[in-house]
Design a protein around this nucleic acid. Sequence first.
DNA 1: AATATTCCCGTTTTT
DNA 2: CGGGAATATT
Length: 717
Amino acid sequence: MEHLLQELNEPQREAVAHTDGPLLILAGPGSGKTRVVTRRAAHLAATVTRAYKILAITFTNKAATEMRERIDSLGVAPGMTVCTFHALCAKLLRIHHDRVGVPANFTIFDRDDRRKIIKQAIADSDLSTTNWQPSAIESAIGDAKNHMVSAAEFAEQASDWRERTIARVYTQYEAILTKMGGLDFDDLLMRMAVVLSRDSQLCMDLEDRFSYVLIDEYQDTNDAQYLIAKQLTQQRKNLCATGDPDQSIYGWRGANIENILAFEKDYPNAKVVRLEQNYRSTKRVLSAASALIAGNSQRKEKSLWTENADGARIRVVEYENGDEEAALVVRDLAQRIREGQDASSVAVFYRVNSLSRSLEEAFLREGLPYQIARGVEFYNRKEIRDVLAYMRVVVNPADDVALLRIINTPTRGIGNTTVNRLKDFAKGTQQSILEVVNTRSAEDLGRSAKKLKTFAELMQRLAPLFELPPAKALDTILRESGLRAMYAQNIDLDDAPAGNLDELLSAASVYQEDFPEATLIDWLEHTALVSDVDAVEDGRAAVTLMTLHAAKGLEFDVVYVIGWEEGLLPFRRRDQIESSDVEEERRLAFVGMTRARKRLTLSYVRYRMMRGITERSVRSPFLDELPYNEVEWPTKAPTRANKRQIPSGELPHDIEEWHMGSLVRHPIHGLGQVMEITKGARRTHVDVQFKNGSRRSWVLEFADLERVDFDEVGDAR
DNA sequence: AATATTCCCGTTTTT
DNA sequence: CGGGAATATT
């Protein structure tokens, strides 16, 4: 087992060699975390325990797969459990369904399903979706579940009318879920956390089953996940948490950075290992990123260092507008690629997806291959969801969401009127829609009674499929339902649905081979929880475009991060006075920067068009936090000859902080002072007295003015 | 029931 | 400006 401890630096070795008791691995970017985690798991399996006693939990399937593969390659006996939090909970809830109080065949509802049910719940509560936005209610409920607040508790705590109303919808939402035998993603975690806190015997049994627990990306855990981890390791405290508070970027999704920050308080005798040596980036990249993140107060300090080369200075570039930015960034990276840089090791990151459009156009114009990393897709395609809906009803006939999807797909003459009638019959009863169809008389069902009968017979025929292996069941469904025929008809060259169905079929076959014992329920669960089928293809010779969030965990030789502007990089919603969480935004910028191995370019524009409106923008204050000498600052605006740049500034550049007395600069009139500023409902006017004697006024948005810091006027930098 | 039109809304999104 | 969804049209 000595080889597991080879080729490690000192803290890495310490972490790998640690066996019993709590361990916190604070892993800076590029510090070899995965290597340490996998080695440690292998080491445990070889020394103090057996592989099947180890549980490794990740957040994404991708991470789980990678970890599993790397552990396998270390020559560990098979049997280790490596899975996502959600998959773990789904499995455990399924096994212990009677103790939890959920049906054994519960369906996992995804975001789409959830939205539909929420709309239903809003309607059931006699509210209009105009006044009560489904998305707002959805996030309120999701929030509650992240904090393990049940509908009843929510209602109890509700202090105003709005909250009481949301409580009503939440209650109704839960009622619908229960009736349908469904759990949403948040439920998987919440139910598990709740059952563990009530059932100490179960905790002990599970701790017996999994003696060593390892959690990756611990900074991203929410309250439920935190509790699950805690309860799974109650007796022996064999919890190893790895992560980096500086890379916590999912606070808005319920992740609680305190979980990792307070780890030592939760586990007082915890061993803490800091992985600070970086093997990825140049010294310049690292010091710039470090300087930026030092601006945060909520952190566990690390001093990142590297033996890598100094590297090129970080470039900060100013462009006139988004189109120019896109065009010139693409031209710049095209040049790099021409010089021999591999396109697949080049990436462009942005804060919001909308910035990808102009980039895409630029890539197309330049004729350069690119790929946009957007997850989901495959299992979200209509044809895939159609088939899966059939399977869902087969497995769980109470699943009305799925049933309503397929009742007229392919079209079989069952229209809205009929469907509404069915819904009415089912409402307020414990009957599912399918039961209504099966039990109501022909008179009740109305004109479409015959067609409903035919449909009911179809479902009757499909019902026994639930005990068949997935591929076989899938094939039968495709044939019997008429879906295959339906999709065989339209052969769009673009994306052939029929081909996707075949792909799904082969995925089922592969699954079946991998897990010969698996049932349709397992396969369905798999499809609900594993959706990264066609995420980013690596190895393709294309430049990668993605959001900063999506970039976490990846690395590229050459990185561009665009849109370093006030309101966009520390993102601020227009209607929000407070910028949401500047520290999290700074971490996001940090994550983006630390993806770069060799070259890093940050850009901002003077005018940014968003939602069809062009607005004057102010460069991100984050740029001012970068170390002055490590950065190649913009010298002059490329298309504005006589515009002087401010290389660094301490004062905020926020347009909303313009007030009387502000010093400004105009390309023609030169230096001036704001004499008057009037905020109208739509436009803000400025009146400026210039040093050269002229006095002018503009609408601020269109004024070619730039704010100047007081101490820069004398400073001829 | 399929298609055209208008309307609305706008950050990130591991499962 | 542009996508998705609700609504109107044939």
